[in-house]
Design a protein around this nucleic acid. Structure first.
Length: 834
RNA sequence: GCCGAGGUGGCGAAAUUUGGUAAACGCUAUGGUUUCAGGAACCAUUGGGAGAAAUCCCUUGUGGGUUCAAAUCCCACCUUCGGCACCA
């Protein structure tokens, strides 16, 4: 009988569902294991073999953990709000809800036909009101805690998507979704105060078992830097204004030859404002008009323009007033330049052109003064005032020069001492800044969870009372954006018009929706109790199942979803709503699957669909190939040909069953047993360490060996099937249950039977059985392999030497030469140095 | 520019954790077997070179170094990929 996956796979998928084999039970006699996949966006095209890679990993691990006696939670759902469905609606008029539910049906079928053991009773969908009710509830918790706020700010606006974006969604100044150049706009928008959690988000990275790469990306994104704020005085008449600047390089303070203020800095408008500035001073500024013009232009520039002019730094001096360097009372000119950012630090810097590349370029162009204040500890360097920019040695620690009483100190000492000196005089204080910005969460789009806020002319912003949740997204017909930077919801009068929950007078609803990342920031909580109507998840279920033990997904979410989820978790922990403050204990990033040298994408037309592979070779073959392709965390190229190897392997597995019998010869049986136990060890360890490719290879080696036998005992074959079962569940289940026939085959601990293979215990290897009686001792001469001998593993050095020197081949190599040294590595090799 | 991860046959890769037989396993290719035929079946060979053969020499991006011994450790460089990017 031939191996025919099409005949068996659908059958077992139905039976597993009927037997509820992979359903997570809320009974905790066994230790729990929560294995989570990043849930997919239900795109109309379905998922491709790249998505399936990570899902295969999590399914293999879940099945193995089940066999190891864990109570496994392995759920799946859909991240269903978002732009593609809405853009499709604008084009075709098909409502996003309709398209989404169609896509979900399709993807769910794809996942089921791959044999994944998800607990579909727990399926969630973020666009379902039962779900987004709690997303809105989360928003309200944050709002009530003062962590959700609305403010006018310069934001990134995508002209094609007609909505603002979070900073994380802007890549190289372009929209991550459609690649349009992002515009800067001043808009009134909602933010989450994630910056309040910057320090904890940074520190707690130490607590979690995540790829170092992802941790580092988060660390850099949070971008903590510790330094000092220094107060430069600017005199307007007799009253000085303090201008704080931020620096991490106090040791270069004597090298400051000018200061730069960001164009948006309030101090600039104050200085220019004739009403506030004494007439005498205002008249001191001789180039008011030019400065105003520069500021206007800078404000209009997009982020990309500001940076893309690359090194070509623009700016303008405020003529007529000076700033005073507190450390030496030196008067320095003041510039307004957009290479200084208002959003970071104090929005003003002290410029040290001799030791900072950016300041150097700016100063060089204008012929500004440069003062060298640091020399390298050793060696000579061209003067910092001449080289295009300071060499590394200057930027790192050096020795101070031209720095008054601090000359001859090291950078490190000087940093401390200068800070102390100014601190005492109240002219500086230590400060810490982060690159992390608050999370912009409002979107001027339809297909998202409405922000549950009501605007009342009397009461102002009023949160929607909990009992009125969810604020249901109304069904609409016209999906086109209003063109006024508003969500299409603004056109829906029925939705907008409401009553103030407080004073009952006429009021309007917020029409912006929430960023989809808000929906996905807490979804892992909902799986534990997906149908709860009273709370996002009951306390008990949260305690029983969470945190997530293993999270598998792509690295592209490193600074978005993964950071946001951590923020939500910490917030809910602070609210005493959950008992843990890190959501995902272990994270694994599967590598990207390439084809024709590029990441699979619809636009490149290089997508491989699993449906085709499954139809042709079956789900087991596809799963095996996903595992076998290469290292799990590494990008690998998809090969249609390579799939065949896995199909051949399964055919072999299938045909071996014909050899079952109890008459293995004794010697053979012992050798086989040794190999089987070695394989149990290898596969168990490899699966534990995400080395799926070598686990598959070990099973291939074992299958090749089994194939050579005339007869194979049932127990040996059964062990093999069990090891293979998490990876190729259908074929192993089929053979396993079939073998439970009434022909008198004993059903021992490893006996096959009529119940599922996944109810069996994961096999354990016997350490006694994998001990070698004989090993190959490598004989090297001058480090090159020249001979091998079979010996006992415990062979002594003397004995090994004796045997080695007797060998003809060895004698030939040594011949009259003097043996200088013999190195013996027990159980491994002997090296003769001549 | 800064940070990070890589570079091993014709291809995907093993061996890097612990320095100790480089190329396991699979694909491809070549030759053969079976079959009415086909190949997504089976068998053999498959890093390069020399040789009739035994066997020998060379080979892990490049160049140095440490060591009895280096794909593995150290230094410098080249290169591919990923992230950040005027963050003071």
């Amino acid at each position: 009988m031939e191996y025919n996956p099409q005949k068996i796979e659908g059958k077992w998928q139905r039976i597993w569902e009927k037997e509820k084999l992979f359903k997570a039970k809320d009974i905790f006699k066994k230790p729990k294991f929560y294995c989570l996949d990043m849930f997919p966006y239900p795109s109309a095209e379905g998922i491709h073999v790249g998505h399936l890679k990570g899902y295969t990993f999590s399914d293999v691990i879940s099945k193995k953990k089940t066999m190891e006696g864990f109570n496994v939670l392995h759920p799946m759902g859909f991240d269903a709000f978002g732009l593609p469905a809405e853009n499709f609606a604008i084009k075709t008029g098909v409502p996003p809800a309709k398209l989404t539910s169609r896509s979900i049906k399709n993807i769910k079928q794809q996942l089921i036909s791959a044999g994944f053991g998800y607990d579909w009773q727990r399926e969630i969908c973020t666009c379902n009101p039962d779900y987004y009710k709690w997303t809105q509830w989360m928003f309200l918790q944050l709002y009530n805690a003062g962590l959700a706020y609305k403010k006018e700010a310069p934001v990134n606006f995508c002209p094609s998507c007609k909505t603002v974006l979070a900073r994380e969604q802007v890549i190289d100044g372009k929209c991550e979704r459609c690649d349009s150049l992002v515009e800067k706009k001043y808009l009134n928008q909602w933010f989450f105060k994630i910056t309040d959690y910057a320090e904890r988000l940074l520190n707690d990275l130490n607590k979690i078992d995540w790829p170092e790469k992802v941790k580092l990306m988060q660390k850099n994104w949070i971008g903590k830097s510790e330094g000092t704020e220094i107060y430069f005085k600017i005199y307007r008449g007799s009253t000085p204004v303090n201008l704080p600047v931020f620096t991490t390089r106090m040791d270069t303070l004597f090298g400051c030859t000018y200061v730069v203020i960001a164009p948006e800095h309030p101090i600039v408008s104050n200085l220019l404002d004739a009403k506030r500035t004494p007439r005498r001073v205002a008249s001191q500024i001789s180039n008011l008009k030019e400065i105003e013009k520069y500021i206007e232009e800078a404000k209009k520039k997009t982020e990309i323009e500001r940076v893309a002019e690359d090194k070509e730094k623009t700016g303008i001096e405020i003529r007529g007033i000076k700033a005073i360097n507190p450390v030496n009372n030196q008067e320095v000119p003041i510039f307004v330049a957009d290479y200084v950012l208002m959003e970071y630090g104090t929005g003003a810097i002290m410029a040290v052109p001799a030791h900072d590349q950016r300041d150097f370029i700016f100063a060089k162009k204008r012929g500004l003064e440069m003062i060298e204040v640091i020399k390298p500890k050793t060696g000579r360097h061209p003067p910092a005032t001449q080289s295009p920019f300071p060499e590394k040695a200057f930027q790192e620690d050096g020795i101070l020069i031209n720095s008054g009483p601090f000359s001859e100190k090291t950078s490190e000492e000087a940093r401390k001492e200068i800070t102390k000196y100014l601190e005492k005089r109240g002219q500086a204080k230590k400060a810490t800044y982060y690159k992390l910005r608050d999370w912009l969460i409002s979107r001027q789009r339809y297909w998202g969870a409405p922000i549950p806020i009501i605007y009342c002319s009397k009461c102002g912003k009023v949160p929607v009372p909990e009992k009125d949740l969810p604020v249901v997204l109304p069904k609409i017909k016209d999906f086109k954006p209003t063109g006024k930077g508003e969500s299409p919801l603004a056109k829906v009068e029925k939705f907008v018009k409401t009553k103030c929950p407080k004073c009952k007078s006429k009021a309007k609803r917020e029409t912006d929706t929430l960023d989809t990342f808000v929906c996905s920031s807490w979804y892992f909580l909902r799986y534990t109790d997906p149908k709860n109507l009273k709370i996002f998840a009951s306390e008990k279920k949260i305690k029983d199942w969470l945190p997530v033990d293993l999270y598998i997904g792509g690295a592209e979410h490193a600074v978005m979803h993964l950071l946001y989820s951590r923020f939500f978790t910490k917030f809910l922990f602070d609210q005493k709503l959950i008992h843990f403050d890190e959501p995902f204990l272990k994270l694994f990033n599967q590598g990207i699957v390439y084809r024709q040298g590029a990441k699979m994408s619809k636009s490149k037309g290089n997508v491989v669909r699993p449906d085709y592979i499954i139809r042709k070779f079956g789900a087991d073959t596809m799963r095996l190939y996903e595992l076998f392709m290469g290292p799990a965390n590494q990008a690998t190229e998809w090969s249609d040909k390579g799939v065949i190897g896995c199909f051949r392997f399964l055919n072999k597995v299938w045909s071996i069953q014909e050899r079952i019998g109890n008459q293995e010869s004794k010697v053979k049986s012992q050798q086989l047993e040794k190999l089987i136990h070695k394989t149990i060890k290898k596969v168990s360890q490899d699966l534990e360490n995400f080395r799926f490719n070598t686990a598959v290879s070990a099973l291939m080696i074992l299958a090749n060996e089994l194939e050579k036998q005339a007869k194979i005992s049932l127990i040996h074959y059964s062990l093999f099937l069990m090891l293979l079962s998490p990876m190729a569940p259908h074929i192993t289940e089929e053979i396993w249950r079939k073998l439970g026939n009434p022909e008198g085959i004993p059903s021992g601990s490893y006996g096959a039977g009529k119940k599922s293979i996944f109810l069996e215990k994961w096999p354990k290897y016997n350490p006694e059985l994998i001990k070698e009686e004989k090993i190959q001792l490598i004989i090297q001469i001058n480090g090159k392999v020249r001979d091998k001998i079979e010996v006992e593993p415990e062979i002594t050095e003397e004995k090994a030497k004796e045997l080695t020197l007797k060998r003809e081949r060895v004698k030939r190599w040594i011949e009259k030469k003097e043996i200088k040294k013999i190195i013996f590595v027990p159980g491994k090799l002997i090296n003769i140095v001549i």
